[in-house]
Design a protein around this nucleic acid. Structure first.
Lengths: 208, 208
DNA sequence: GTTTGTGAAACGATTCACAGCT
DNA sequence: AGCTGTGAATCGTTTCACAAAC
């Protein structure tokens, strides 16, 4: 498959379509049209077809898409055909919520380590996983590499944690700290910033 | 000020700039150039200037922007010159993390009520706030309206909660449930979907 | 000399519209 | 007849580049 550059917005929608298809399958549906999928996903049918067309043609003209089949295709496209090892840095509230969320491992993500700098938290067992001292981060990741690191630390230390991860060869970071991480371009970072979400809401509220 | 339509991407960057400026102020900086702000925010100087230009001209040529002043302007633009009343539906892990996060009220958001359907949770005090039965939602929001509702329920009930909120006049929703909420167009919804963030990471990992 | 503010150009994403398959 | 797949057209966003201000 010739890999042109795929827009981030497209990838996000693919992920969304997958979620919709899981819903349709649970409802017992065998086929969906781009129209139905679009309605559920909050887009247009043309957008659905265009998004899929970057990766192949998965539908049958006149009929639509097989729910099962398209689900499989999307999983392949998104790289969900394997499991991922996830390390979490920061054993605060959000880290805790992540670790304890069962859907997480159901979706193919295994949390293999969790670190914190706070001596109070180190040693405590979380969902069967020991909270380790962040000093052990380098050693731990060298012994058992992680595919994805989730950073849930205060903003002040997030960059230095990212730097250490990058030095250790980590190629994907999900950052909850409220700063924009600077990383080499071969490392992917996604930012989740609640303040930002709230502020887009207040902006919208203000302007109507 | 003539209100052209502002792109969501622009608003998100404005929010980001504000976070950067707070950092600069903490560092004792008085002025920043669009270059410096861009470097910290992960964008370009032209982008910074263009974003700001939709709302006015806040800089001094040859000099840059006053950190303090620009902070104030951004807060005004984003609608942060007042406090917001936030209600949370769903007293799970994420709801808990939200309620207990102090930065939240520091930023002008007051959590005024939290609801859950689980009898086990109802009546428990969270950070000085009683978890109320979700049956009381309508009455509670009628007596004391919320500006923003955060939905942190399982996907199956999220849409019905959103419908109730909309009927009660809520105009802004932040949704953590993994479904795309359908709301009238005068209601703003922001989706936060962790599965989706992870899947954009796996997609990126796969394609390199 | 430095940096802003902004039209114009370049780029990228979405929508249209229809030929082609079932 | 119905729905997909896709080039072409449209629309929106980002980047360029430079005159104006300090």
């Amino acid at each position: 498959m010739t890999m042109r550059k795929i827009a981030e917005s497209t990838v996000r929608r693919l992920s969304l379509y997958l979620r919709c298809l899981e819903g349709f399958e649970a409802q017992g549906l065998d086929t969906v049209s781009s129209d139905v999928l679009a309605a559920r996903g909050g887009t247009t049918s043309a957008q659905v077809r265009k998004d899929l067309s970057f990766f192949g043609s998965f539908g049958k003209r006149g009929l639509g898409y097989s729910v099962r089949e398209l689900e499989g295709e999307l999983r392949t496209i998104l790289g969900l055909g394997r499991r991922y090892r996830v390390a979490v840095i920061g054993a605060g509230k959000i880290g805790s919520a992540l670790v304890q969320y069962p859907g997480f491992s159901q979706r193919g993500f295994d949390i293999v380590a969790i670190f914190d700098a706070d001596a109070q938290k180190v040693g405590r067992a979380w969902n069967g996983l020991n909270v380790r001292n962040v000093r052990e981060l380098d050693q731990a990741l060298r012994e058992e590499p992680a595919d994805i690191v989730v950073i849930v630390t205060p903003g002040e230390v997030a960059q230095s944690m990212a730097d250490r991860c990058v030095a250790l060869g980590v190629k994907a970071i999900l950052n909850f700290a409220p700063i924009q991480l600077q990383v080499p371009e071969d490392v992917v970072v996604k930012h989740v910033n609640l303040a930002l979400e709230f502020e887009t809401l207040t902006f919208a509220l203000k302007n109507r």
